[in-house]
Amino acid sequence: MAWAAVASLLATEEAKALGHTQVLWLDSVERRFIEEVGTMNVMLRIGDEIVTPPLSDSILPGVTRLTALALLREWGERVSEHPVDINDVIAGVESGAIQEIWGLGTAAVVSPIGSLTYRGRTLAIGDGKTGPTTPRLYRAITRLHTQPGPDPYGWRVDVH
């Protein structure tokens, strides 16, 4: 366990030295399937579909992820959970098929990813601009956190 923590700190420091704020983690077996960004779940808009890696022993079932999946499906978005190969991500960003990538977590809620560096190459995602899904999700989730009155989904618990 201690070695994993040290390895994650090293990767994070290396990313920061390159001017990045987070690390996009790949699976530990094949080192090609994306898992999480920092300590957040990750989603990508690939064409007209939103994709997120499936839950596993190394991908946590985050509440924000579950909330986003429910909202996206309610909005009529095509959503799937399947492995995403980093090489397909690079090709998708280069071709323009991937216009948006974002992280989801309790602290950040929804955070856009503007660029990705892999094997020495840095690519802007969606020309480095935040796409439409990221802020829409952020607004919807934070509204659920703060809106007065009944919770239409039954997700909140009032604490007195």
Rank of each mutant, 00 (worst) to 15 (best):
1 M>G: 12
2 A>N: 08
2 A>C: 07
6 V>W: 15
8 S>M: 11
9 L>D: 13
10 L>C: 10
10 L>R: 14
11 A>Y: 11
11 A>M: 05
12 T>A: 09
13 E>G: 03
16 K>W: 09
16 K>H: 14
16 K>A: 14
17 A>Y: 05
20 H>T: 05
22 Q>G: 00
22 Q>S: 09
23 V>K: 01
23 V>H: 03
25 W>K: 05
27 D>W: 12
27 D>C: 05
30 E>S: 12
32 R>A: 00
32 R>E: 03
33 F>N: 13
33 F>I: 11
35 E>H: 09
37 V>G: 01
38 G>T: 06
40 M>C: 10
40 M>T: 03
41 N>P: 11
43 M>G: 02
45 R>E: 06
47 G>E: 04
47 G>H: 11
48 D>C: 04
50 I>G: 06
51 V>R: 13
51 V>W: 12
54 P>D: 00
54 P>K: 01
54 P>T: 02
57 D>W: 11
57 D>G: 15
58 S>R: 15
58 S>L: 13
59 I>V: 15
59 I>C: 03
61 P>D: 05
61 P>W: 06
72 L>M: 14
72 L>A: 07
74 E>M: 00
74 E>H: 04
75 W>Q: 10
77 E>Y: 12
79 V>I: 06
80 S>I: 01
80 S>W: 02
81 E>D: 01
81 E>A: 03
82 H>Q: 15
84 V>S: 01
85 D>K: 04
85 D>H: 12
86 I>D: 02
86 I>K: 06
87 N>V: 09
88 D>L: 07
88 D>I: 01
90 I>W: 01
92 G>T: 05
92 G>A: 05
93 V>H: 09
93 V>E: 08
93 V>T: 09
93 V>A: 07
94 E>C: 04
96 G>M: 07
98 I>H: 00
100 E>V: 04
100 E>M: 08
100 E>P: 04
103 G>M: 12
103 G>P: 11
108 A>V: 14
108 A>S: 13
109 V>N: 04
109 V>E: 02
111 S>A: 15
114 G>V: 05
118 Y>V: 08
118 Y>H: 15
119 R>V: 00
122 T>S: 13
122 T>H: 07
122 T>V: 10
122 T>C: 11
123 L>S: 10
124 A>L: 15
124 A>E: 14
125 I>R: 08
125 I>M: 08
128 G>D: 10
128 G>Q: 11
131 G>D: 08
132 P>T: 02
132 P>L: 04
133 T>H: 10
133 T>V: 15
134 T>L: 07
135 P>M: 06
138 Y>M: 12
138 Y>K: 14
138 Y>S: 07
139 R>Y: 09
139 R>H: 14
140 A>F: 02
141 I>F: 07
141 I>C: 06
142 T>W: 08
142 T>H: 09
143 R>Y: 14
144 L>I: 08
144 L>K: 08
147 Q>A: 15
149 G>C: 04
150 P>W: 03
151 D>C: 02
154 G>C: 00
155 W>Y: 10
158 D>W: 13
